[in-house]
Write a protein that binds this DNA or RNA. Structure first.
Lengths: 241, 241
DNA sequence: AAGTGGTCTAGACCACACG
DNA sequence: GTGTGGTCTAGACCACTTC
């Protein structure tokens, strides 16, 4: 038993030892782990402590726990990965550019009129529509077109967005409970090409994102990246290691 | 105190009650939560149980815990979201198409020769290069170009990939500990256009993904989606609700 | 010094699923 | 029935950080 290296808690050390065994194949995929009672004996820890360690492995998806059937090794931990919901200001600065943005449009419209039709939002609710051009060293990097539901974010009407872009402002001021997104690519048309300073037809990664407070839509945004000028990156390390 | 509705565990009910208070603004952002001792009194639960509930809120990023200073409400839980690392077979079937794929190329090459140069992999290591065209109802949906490091996945050389595509095979057979990815968009050239049955220049969402076993690269893949034929979607619900 | 969270133990009861 | 994990309590010691 290699449960060494103090400074980490006992449950952490047990978790690490067990995840190492799983990754090294000591316990085979589909096979059973020793029961909690056996691990209690092996590690000389209390059942709570062992249970906590194994529960963390289960949260990471390395194992599945079943009453009576015991704990079995899975490998469904690859089913998700994390994409940072980056603050574009940080991302731009990280590549050494000075971040800036410009508000191209800001209007309050009534849902159901003016061509606005946001289903799931009551007809007549005021909506804030805003368009932002983000740039680095004055080079356009991303065009953001956003609708904000004033029923979910009433204070937004008093916000000019002259010092803070909408995305960080919303994150800091309007809580949300769920989000969905869609990643696609578009060939930019002449309007986009002009705003983003690209050749017509350039492939642009595009993210559409919607956030909700329970069932109520909060905001929906379409973010068109200026071709390959800014990369969308992410990484994920299994947290149990 | 609305700690009602049994069937859920006590710590779950406490967690839900507390997250609701945070989202409703009972505890303001930057403000302090009651200490564990106070919550023990309020909810009539043991300290372990209260601690577990609050620890889960902290894992989700709703609060930050500090010794002596207490637990404060943050709002950094929006910093990441989850993108499903979808099994394309499922995704295709979900939209009602019959999934199929074809191996366009399969070769074993030596790193450092034949134009192969995978830094971080020893020169001379055999690499499996494979190209797969995924389709739905015989319509091309995604072109996958992949390298696999045989030092990390020795059994891959015996696998023809005639019945299982590389991605699910790898997930099921070769463990990994970290992954990174890059999302971009490309204008497809003539070769891609032919393989994916698209017009030259069509914007195609592209994912590059690399996985590792600790420091050892396992596989790297470039997946080019056929324009907008297949969508990349994901959603995330705050797990504390 | 004192209050906070972090962790651990020992013991207990329960729910579930399999034989 | 029986073994598994799921959860809870009570009490304890410790580490950290602010006062």
């Amino acid at each position: 038993m290699a449960v060494t290296k103090a400074a980490d808690s006992l449950s952490t050390r047990i978790r690490r030892e067990m995840s190492e065994r799983i990754l090294k194949g000591v316990y085979t995929v589909g096979g059973r782990l020793p029961s909690e009672a056996e691990l209690v004996r092996e590690f000389g820890a209390s059942r709570q402590t062992v249970s906590k360690a194994i529960a963390e492995l289960a949260r990471c998806g390395l194992v599945e726990r079943n009453r009576r059937a015991g704990t079995v090794v899975t490998r469904k931990f690859h089913r998700t990965f994390i994409l940072p919901m980056a603050d574009i200001r940080q991302d731009v600065r990280e590549v050494g550019l000075s971040y800036g943005y410009r508000v191209l449009d800001r209007a309050i419209l009534s849902n159901g009129k003016d061509g606005m039709d946001w289903s799931d939002v009551h007809v007549g609710t005021p909506l804030l529509r805003i368009e932002i051009l983000h740039s680095g060293d004055d080079m356009p990097l991303m065009l953001e077109s956003r609708l904000i539901n004033t029923a979910a974010a009433p204070t937004v009407v008093d916000e000019s967005f002259e010092t803070t872009p909408p995305s960080p402002w919303l994150l800091a001021n309007i809580p949300w409970t769920s989000v969905d997104h869609r990643i696609s690519a578009i060939n930019c048309g002449s309007d986009l090409a002009q705003k983003l300073d690209l050749a017509v037809g350039t492939a642009c990664p595009t993210i559409e994102r919607r956030t909700f407070q329970f069932d109520m839509p909060v905001t929906r945004a379409r973010m068109v990246m200026a071709g390959s000028r800014l990369e969308l990156k992410g990484s994920y390390v299994l947290p149990t290691i």
